[in-house]
Simulated scan of single mutants.
Amino acid sequence: KSVPGTRNQFTVQVVTTGQSKVFDCANGTVFDQQACVCVNDMDYTMRPTVPPMRRTTRISVDPLVPTTRPLCRPSFALDFNSKPIADSSNMQVYVRNEGVESVVDAGQFNKQAQLNIPMFSWLGHKMTVKFRFFEWDGGDREQTLFANCQHSIAGRRGMGSIEVMLRSATKEVVFRIKTKGSEMREIAVPYPTKSWKNVTLTYDGKYFKGKVNDREATVQVRGNIESRSEGIYIGQCPRNGPGGSKRAYVGYIDDLKFYKCVLPEVPSPELFVDRNPV
Rank of each mutant, 00 (worst) to 15 (best):
V3T: 11
N8L: 02
Q9E: 15
F10V: 08
T11S: 14
T11K: 12
T11D: 06
T16M: 10
T17Q: 12
V22D: 11
F23C: 08
F23Q: 10
D24P: 03
C25W: 02
A26I: 02
G28A: 05
G28R: 05
Q34I: 11
C36R: 14
D43Y: 02
T45P: 00
R47Y: 01
T57P: 07
T57Y: 15
R58V: 14
I59Q: 13
T68S: 14
R69V: 04
P70M: 08
P70Y: 07
L71I: 10
S75G: 11
K83P: 02
I85C: 06
M91D: 13
Y94V: 13
V95N: 03
R96Y: 06
E98C: 01
G99R: 03
G99Y: 01
V100E: 01
V103G: 09
Q108N: 14
F109E: 02
F109L: 07
F109S: 02
A113S: 15
A113P: 03
N116L: 05
P118V: 02
P118F: 03
M119L: 15
F120C: 02
G124L: 11
G124W: 10
M127N: 10
V129Q: 08
K130L: 08
K130E: 15
R132C: 09
F133L: 10
F133C: 05
F133W: 09
F134A: 12
E135G: 05
E135D: 12
T144H: 01
L145K: 05
F146A: 07
S152D: 11
A154W: 06
G160D: 01
G160M: 03
M165S: 01
M165C: 01
S168P: 01
A169Y: 03
S182Q: 07
E183H: 08
M184D: 09
R185L: 05
V189F: 13
Y191D: 08
L201N: 10
K206C: 11
K206V: 08
K211A: 11
V212T: 06
N213G: 12
D214A: 15
T218M: 13
R222V: 13
E226W: 05
E226P: 00
R228E: 05
I234N: 02
C237M: 08
P238A: 10
N240K: 06
G241S: 08
G241W: 02
G241N: 05
G243N: 11
S245R: 09
R247D: 03
Y249A: 06
V250W: 01
L256Q: 02
F258G: 01
V262W: 04
V262H: 04
E265R: 05
V266C: 11
S268G: 12
P269G: 10
L271N: 14
F272E: 15
F272P: 00
D274G: 06
N276M: 13
